[in-house]
Design a protein around this nucleic acid. Structure first.
Length: 563
RNA sequence: GCAUCAGUAGCUCAGUGGAUAGAGCAAUGGCCUCCGGAGCCAUGUGCGGAGGUUCGAUUCCUCUCUGGUGCACCA
């Protein structure tokens, strides 16, 4: 429909190309102002006339058109009122079409997403939830656009923290306790280490030396490390199962330990390495950044080294067109450094293809999260708490519901996911139970409720089918029309979300559609006597239902048929 | 100190170079013997400050204030 407006304008004015016209066309803020609008401000300069006059001239030149009901000018705007039956038809048809909201722009292209990536031997807490949820949604969104997405869980399973753990385990731990309490015991040891190291700094050297032994392949060190890692993975998978998420690869930092030497050699032959206080660094003064540390003064690698190795490995293995890193904004400098080093090694593609996707800090009622102070909430507890609260609500509102367990899980987990995806990534989050467990208004359950309502309506119709003639004029009223217009934004919403790496756009869309639907529902009966009215409205309900399901799917959230 | 991100309604947040800046929460009142009341409707205050670019700035630029985060041998 928009392209037809472009066509009309192109024929009746000069100086602008079709694509220029297309980008200028807007959708008026209010339905009374028409379906499409063309602002003439930018023409005023070249045409040397007041924009209002230009608008009037163009309007007169266009005259009557087959697809238009009328044209009006309002100040510098030319407002187009499209013939409603044609407009409605085009919106309904595209919503019913294949892969509505998606596209094939990613055909044949690969995107790697590095997300979740918890640190082994530490609990999976509310902070890790964000990267996991955002990364998973980006995976869904890019898949919808035809990309092949490689989901990589870059586990923090290598580094000095294991040296610390080994020291602590040997000093204060024992096998039985670790077997009994798993990650919780490892955490206890880790905290204990830091307490003791504050008093005896030489413990840190001991820890570094154990890590150094790991890097050199020391069997004893590696055996303990592998054991700790196995224990952690079991616990993480439990959370991923609850979230309904999975990864293509669990390739932690340890996977790159034999690949860091090649990186160091590349840097050496490119003359980028400098010695500084016994460590090897790449200076980045020219780029207004602190240097990137490559090797510590004992010669062992550091996370930057392993990130560099991972980039080369992924580029070669997956041939990505983009590699995304979903981590907290506090790691911004780190990624800027690493990406710059890749670029300095002669890889221009680093500029476009390596993207850090930061998100805001999660705090606990204003307090900083800290494993050491015990000021922490675990992801699993949040999810289970939300599910149990939903169960209570179901008992109260719909006690006869079948498979309550399964439904409560979809809604409770969905509420947590939605809550994390509804605002822009970069916003800091202050975690509050009270807010998380309120399911009124702009929430996951609200959208899911709307879906269940649609599903219920469709269920109650006799022989509903999307085939058959549709009387489009039936949908020509304010509420139906604004619902349809909202739905028809889906493709643009998905494309924008992908471009900005911002799943919140999709979450907002889901709420907007739900609000528009509930308004429509409130003033229109669907199951009525007249067949043509019933059918047309049922089609709209069906489109709404399917669109909500798709949008929520892009967030990683399932919609139950009943709740 | 340097870098970086953010400042919009009491709270949590949308929005965008353009037509009267929008939602939810919280509060109060209302919703038809009818398809799901986890719903719908009604009622109020606001773009941190100063310049600049522009026909037009909440949006872009500069400065400034406030808050967050980062600044090598942790990840």
């Amino acid at each position: 429909m928009k392209s037809k407006i472009v066509e009309i304008l192109e024929k009746n004015m000069e100086g602008l190309s079709a694509s220029e016209i297309e980008t200028l066309i807007e959708i008026p803020p209010k339905a009374e102002l028409g379906d499409f609008a063309f602002p003439c401000f930018s023409l005023a300069k070249t045409m040397r006339k007041a924009p209002q006059i230009i608008a009037e001239d163009i309007k007169n030149k266009i005259g009557a058109q087959e697809i238009l009901e009328k044209i009006e000018t309002q100040g510098a705007y030319i407002n187009f009122f499209v013939k409603k039956d044609l407009y409605i038809k085009s919106m309904v048809e595209s919503a019913l079409g294949k892969n509505f909201g998606g596209s094939d722009e990613g055909e044949g292209k690969v995107i790697c997403i590095d997300y979740s990536s918890p640190n082994v031997a530490k609990n999976f807490h509310v902070g890790h939830l964000r990267t996991t949820i955002i990364g998973n949604s980006l995976y869904k969104i890019y898949s919808k656009l035809g990309y092949k997405v490689v989901r990589i869980n870059h586990l923090g399973d290598w580094g000095t923290q294991f040296g610390k753990l080994i020291v602590a385990y040997k000093a204060w731990g024992n096998e039985d306790a670790v077997k009994a309490d798993g990650v919780a015991e490892l955490m206890r040891l880790y905290v204990k280490f830091h307490e003791e190291a504050d008093k005896k700094p030489e413990l840190n050297d001991e820890a570094r030396s154990w890590f150094n032994r790991m890097e050199k392949g020391d069997e004893e060190a590696l055996e303990i490390w592998q054991w700790f890692k196995d224990i952690s993975l079991v616990e993480y998978k439990r959370t991923y199962d609850l979230l309904g998420m999975d990864f293509d690869y669990y390739l932690g930092e340890s996977f790159y330990r034999d690949k860091t030497e090649a990186v160091v050699n590349k840097l050496k032959s490119a003359n980028l390495l400098t010695e500084s206080d016994g460590a090897m660094i790449v200076k980045l003064d020219d780029y207004n950044m602190a240097p990137c540390l490559i090797l510590k003064n004992d010669g062992s690698s550091i996370y930057a080294t392993r990130d560099l190795a991972a980039i080369f490995y992924r580029k070669e293995t997956y041939k990505f067109c983009k590699c995304l890193y979903v981590t907290g904004q506090e790691q911004k400098l780190h990624f800027a450094q690493v990406f710059k080093v890749i670029e300095l090694l002669g890889n221009e593609w680093a500029k476009e293809e390596l993207v850090h996707i930061p998100y805001g800090l999660v705090s606990l009622e204003g307090e900083k999260l800290s494993t050491r102070s015990g000021n922490i909430i675990y992801a699993e507890d949040i999810l289970l708490e939300a599910v149990s609260k939903i169960k209570e609500i179901i008992e109260e509102k719909n006690p006869d519901l079948e498979d309550k367990e399964e439904t409560a899980k979809k809604i409770g987990v969905g509420a947590v996911l939605f809550n994390d995806l509804y605002n822009q990534r970069i916003k800091d989050v202050s975690f509050k139970w009270e807010k998380l467990l309120n399911f009124d208004g702009e929430t996951g359950p609200y959208v899911q409720y709307t879906y269940a309502r649609c599903a219920s309506i469709i269920r109650k119709l006799d022989n509903f089918s999307i085939d058959g003639e549709i009387d489009y004029n039936i949908l020509n009223d304010a509420d139906a029309l604004s619902l349809l217009k909202e739905i028809s934004k889906f493709p643009k919403v998905v494309a924008d979300a992908a471009e900005k790496y911002e799943p919140s756009a999709v979450a907002r869309f889901a709420v907007n559609v739900s609000q528009a639907f509930n308004k429509f529902y409130n003033s229109n009966r669907i199951n009525v006597e007249e067949e043509n009215v019933k059918h047309a409205r049922a089609i709209l309900v069906y489109i709404t239902k399917e669109t909500i399901k798709e949008a929520m799917g892009l967030l990683g959230i399932e919609c139950p048929e009943r709740m």
